[in-house]
Design a protein around this nucleic acid. Structure first.
Lengths: 393, 393
DNA sequence: GGACTTCCTTCGGTGACCTTAGTAAGGGGT
DNA sequence: ACCCCTTACTAAGGTCACCGAAGGAAGTCC
């Protein structure tokens, strides 16, 4: 049995505060409306609102109109109540954004890191964070890295594009910054963004497939980001889809990534970059068109199998690879349809979300915000960030 | 956002009662020890225990020895506090067991049903349940059926071995029996049993693969049975593992089930039954031995991909097909090892659990018990069964 | 038989919830 | 202009589940 937090008055308050805060995210709402939406009684909502007002997390805005009665006072998150910083680490760059509590980007910064040396990366990140922060109240930092990540411990177990092994990234950054830091797989940052602020909002079961150099997968199952027993769930790119297929960097053969990752496409199309391959296909080169069609079919089958296993409500295709969506989508759809088991077709929705590097960083911020807004049902993870217990400086 | 239940005093009590009951399942424990294990204070535990004693759910047993102090009064589930009935529906038979609150089998019964006519099946099940029940206090019934099941609504959306579509099985049975009924996919009954009473106890992330005529999959993710958005998760048997593979009953081609389900093995081995094929292989027939080896490899690759996606801690192989485990396990292991991504190997555990039909029925009982013992964190699903609010007759 | 241990209960306090009963603030009809 | 109606919110009081502290119960040991 996973440890379950014991029921207590504090737990109740935490749950209900989160409920109220959740409704306040992304909209102005009155106390009465909050009570209606959350199912709480009006006095309870009033008290919680009072507390949040006192903390400076939310504020009263203008009054709305009413149909013949006292006008409701609208409440909303205080724009400058605090900020969060999101970081996306790539091989060569640190991409950072400062966002408000609605994950809206306020400021951005990037820095180059030529090396994968841990110390250098940590220093660069810290410098970037400090310059973004300025004198502002920042609740914490979310970091997205490609690889197998132990989210609870903030450890990079196995970096995809680096030789990192068991690097305690969160601890190192927290020490340097004096801020709470959450580290997670980069695809999960996209998922967090989807779940909290994007197309996946309000959907309990979502799979986000990122296409690009590698093929990644992030999942929201039963309303929660799923990471697997050791934080290693989502190695979609390394599922084996053909027997005796091409060799993959991971050491295996027949990996999805080795078939339809950008390097593989370039190799087959005989181009140096993926852009060239796309151009070639768009100009009507038959062989290249066929390559993209096959890529679509391979991906469609793999995603179809994923649907058979998990029966999500929504599939989001994201990442740079979606630039070629027009080329591979027909094949993708076709293969998907013939792969997915009969009964699971009808309610399935597919969305293509064309995101850039900055969106990954924004997602990392969303990851931290998710942590901030969600009640903590597990036993106390030490130092877990909170909006109400102002630990941030 | 999935609806989250609002925090209240009742929620606290429910959580903590479940905590206490959970510790009491499968062992005698004193009040003090309960307090220590749950993290609750002694007075709270005492009060909850008092309530449960009053309800007749638990009882005081003998006192244990102590090292120089008052002896602890051991508490345990009352053996005859109530019962649960588990049903496994197959094409031709209704297999039923009556279990106590620890899922221990007290009595059993089976009945033949030649037809798949809903009315006839429901009548036969009802008759079987009534004969098993006798005059006893039965909290409810759990039913396992192969197919896509909407667990929340108790609806069989799509039967695997029947032409059932959108059959409201739970409602029909509840009406006939006057007892709460839970319906779920049959593999999930195995999972429930594993999770609550078997090898998967205490493990948060488990995949149970059932092998036999079909290939099924049940999952515990993050400590909870995962069913997918529409209850259709786990169609492992219908994932496509080879391009242009053999046709499957489902209409697709290349399904795992069409490759390594028992009918497929028989066809390839040229035998009428799977037993014959097993015998043939055990007697050293090379072709047949090779067939089983290939079956193992195919399964191993598929399960390996599953591990890449979900990173479970434990894989349980179950079902009649495990009779041939000696024949296919070497190939299975080999393929699994070469499929699973590097970092995910180390903590993975594989267990073969040789279960018979009765175990499926026992699992169905466990399914209902799980419902009974787990606190309800979602908004009130009407008529959800409970141990403390004695709705059973 | 007294001291010490250990188990459990009693009692009072706290806090978060709810219900009920107000008060505040606007609209509209006569 | 007045009064009443509607709607939004606040105040007061009650309930209940939690906890800590203190005390009673039931042993063991010397």
């Amino acid at each position: 049995m996973q440890p379950v937090r014991v029921g207590s008055k504090e737990l109740i308050r935490e749950i209900n505060s989160s409920l109220v805060l959740g409704e306040l995210r992304g909209g102005l709402v009155s106390r009465t409306e909050l009570a209606r939406r959350t199912g709480l009684s009006l006095p309870t909502v009033s008290e919680i609102v009072g507390e949040l007002l006192g903390n400076g997390v939310i504020e009263e805005r203008e009054t709305a109109s009413s149909g013949g009665g006292r006008r409701p006072v609208l409440l909303g998150l205080k724009a400058d109540a605090g900020y969060v910083i999101g970081i996306k680490l790539t091989e060569t760059r640190v991409i950072a954004v400062l966002t408000d509590l609605n994950a809206g980007i306020v400021e951005r910064a990037t820095a180059e890191v030529a090396t994968s040396d841990v110390g250098t990366v940590v220093r660069t990140v810290a410098k970037t964070v400090r310059s973004l922060k300025g004198g502002r109240l920042v609740y914490g930092v979310g970091v997205g890295v490609a690889g197998v990540i132990d989210r609870a411990g903030g450890v990079v177990r196995h970096g995809t594009y680096s030789d990192w092994h068991d690097v305690e990234l969160a601890a190192l950054l927290e020490k340097k910054l004096g801020l709470p830091v959450v580290v997670d797989n980069d695809v999960n940052t996209l998922v967090a963004n989807e779940q909290w602020f994007g197309a996946g909002r309000g959907v309990s079961d979502v799979a986000v497939v990122s296409i690009g150099r590698g093929i990644g997968l992030g999942m929201v199952l039963d309303g929660r980001l799923y990471r697997g027993a050791g934080g290693g769930a989502g190695e979609f790119g390394h599922t084996k889809v053909v027997a005796d297929g091409p060799l993959c960097d991971c050491g295996g053969s027949g990996c999805l990534e080795a078939l339809i990752g950008e390097p593989a496409i370039c190799a087959r199309a005989g181009t140096a970059t993926i852009e060239e391959a796309i151009d070639k296909a768009r100009q009507g080169d038959e062989t290249t068109v066929k390559i993209f069609d096959q890529v679509g079919r391979t991906l469609g089958t793999a995603v179809g199998n994923l649907v058979n296993l998990l029966n999500p409500k929504l599939i989001v295709l994201a990442g740079e690879g979606t630039r070629a969506a027009d080329l591979f989508l027909p094949g993708f759809d076709d293969a998907l349809r013939s792969t997915v088991f009969d009964g699971l077709q009808r309610d399935l929705e597919i969305v293509v979300d064309d995101w850039d590097d900055e969106a990954w960083a924004q997602g990392a911020a969303g990851l931290f915000l998710g942590e901030l807004f969600q009640p903590n049902l597990r036993p106390d993870e030490a130092g877990r960030p909170s909006l109400t217990a102002r630990s941030a400086s």
